[in-house]
Every structure is written in structure tokens, then in C-alpha cells.
Amino acid sequence: MRQVLLDTAARILQDGCTKADLDTAELGEFPGPLWRTFCDQGFHLMALPDSGVELGDAFRVLRVAGRFAVPLPLAEALLANRWLRGPGDGLNVVGRWLGDDAPGGRSAAPRATEAASAGSAQEDAGVFVEVPWGRAAQSVVGVAADGTLWAAAPSGVQQGANLAGEPRDQVGADAVRPLACREPVLALLALSRVALSAGALERVLEFGVGYVQEREQFGRPLAKFQAVQQMLAATAAEVAAANRAADAAIDAIGDERFELEVAAAKARVGEAVGVVAETVHQVHGAMGFTYEHQLHHFTRRLWAWRDEYGNEAYWQARLGRHICSLGAEQVWDFLATRS
């Protein structure tokens, strides 16, 4: 079942994520056909609580999507639909509520019952930022600084992009309503970046390994030079560690340690990104620095994703503070409690 799901996703992505598709998406044109194919196969509802798919498998699909540098806001769409519950047919995405407080100046998280009864009582206007493909969205779910969720239909969009050229728009909202949610929202969003990055890292390593076998200099393939072998071996080690960390965090969904496992994974994957992108660019030479080559679609996303939803420093500190609260004598027990 899981393998069928992942294979189906890979087939769709293989067809819909060519270099030309990635280039077009970067020009700001929403890849509608690819999105509709995903919807036709039911992928957009995969993360709904009653979808019949394990939530972990939704993140495993994201890892596959990372292998293809998917030019869709797949992660934010899956999670927005999960949190909206009755999502409709259009594109819904998650963004960030601008400001230090939740809408209405309230910083307390609305409880499920309170939010349900509050219903339309909240009619605040405001702005969502860093909304992936906000320009194409039917509705936006905004995460406030306190972790509460607020939904609205967009009214007015100011386009923007992250350093990978992925749209990150500013979206106006006339009337936001609270969404009931008891989930670790930030950790789930961070996990989406972990999963996407794990897949992209694997692919980038494959680019490097493939290129040095084709490219010849001094009369032999680059792969035959020890210096090149050493670089790629070290890179492979980072990719392996990042993937093992990602697996652990995905497996921890629903676990009491989930947020700490995500913290460890986001930190470890982020550290791997720096090493892997640097060395694989280096072995590609100037060719890998061109827009014409596809490598940058992956490395720029990796560089963007490691900063989204908390960079290494943020998650390291969060994990570190927890360990400090346990104290030195409990450090080992904390590390050895889970495999």
C-alpha cells in the first residue's frame, strides 16, 4: 500500500517536474496540470484525518516530491487541507499570520470547543505572509506566533519569492476565522521541510555521482580522481545521516517526543544541506552554476528549506534547552530511549 502510493507519486512527479516545468513555475505560472493530476489521484486529501492514509505516508510522499524539486506548494496544501477538514476543490495553503499576536490581539490559543462556538465571531482583517503560491490560493490557513490557526479567503496579493524562486506571497485577508487544532503545527511544517530536503539531498548526490562518471578531464573521468572520490564519499555520509534523521522524525508522528525528534532532524538535515550543496556544486564545475543545468533548482530549494519553519539554530536550541532541563545525568537516557 505504502509502496504503491510512493510509486504513483513518483510517476506523476517524473512526468510533471521536468526542467522546463521547473523553469516555468519559477516564472510565476502555477503548474495547474500537475496539481490537477495530484487531485485526480486524491493526493491533495491524503493528510486528512480520515483519509485512510497514515500521516507519516503523506510525509514520505513529500520526500519523493523533494527528489523532483516539486514546483507545487504540496506540503502546505496537504497540511492546509488537513486543518480545514472540508477543504473544497481549490488550492488551500498554509502561510504565516503577520504580527506577534493572533488575530484580534489575542494570544491565547482557542480551544476546540471555544473555536467551534466562536465561529463567525472573529471577523478580523489582516495580512498573511510567506504564503506559498498565495496568488493561486482559494483559501489560506495562517499560523500565528502562538501556534493557533486562522483561515481566510485571500483579498489582494503581493507577489514574492524565496531564494529558490518558489512563490512566497503576501496575502490580505478581510475576515479571518479560527480553526480548531491541537496539533504541533510548527513541528509538522518543519517536518515537511525535513522530508522534502531528505529527498532532494538524495537526488543531488545522484547528480554528483552521475556527473563525475561522465565528465572527463586529464584523460579520465573525474570519478577516477581520489580527491573527487573523497568529496563525494563525505557527501554520501551526510546524505545518509540526513535521511536516517528524517525517517526517525516521520516515524515519531503521534509520539510524545515528536517535536524533539523533528528538532533533531531539522538540525541534522540543515547541517547536511550546507555540505552537500557545496560539494556537489564544486564537482559540477561551471556547468552546475548555469541556469541551464537543473542542479540549482534542487540546491536553491535546499538552501531555502533549511531556513523555513526554523533554521538549525532555532531547533538546536529548542532541543538543547530540553536536554538541559533534564540535566547531565539524564543525557544518555534521553539519547538511548529511542532507536
Binding site: A240, A241, A242, R244, A245, A248, E261, A263, A264, A265, A267, R268, E271, E312, A313, W315, Q316, A317, R318, L319, G320, R321, I323, C324, V331, F334, L335, A336, S339
Partner: peptide
């Protein structure tokens, strides 16, 4: 903040290595 991040960074490495 720096010390907490250092503690967490080391833990993140250890957790992945141990699992491998």
C-alpha cells in the same frame, strides 16, 4: 542561546549516528 544550540546540535548528531 549559544550553549543551548550547542547542546542540541550535538544531540542531533548523536541521535542520527546511533540510529545508523
Amino acid at each position: 542561546r549559544v550553549a543551548a544550540a550547542a547542546v542540541g546540535r550535538i544531540a542531533a548528531h548523536l541521535m542520527a549516528l546511533r540510529r545508523m
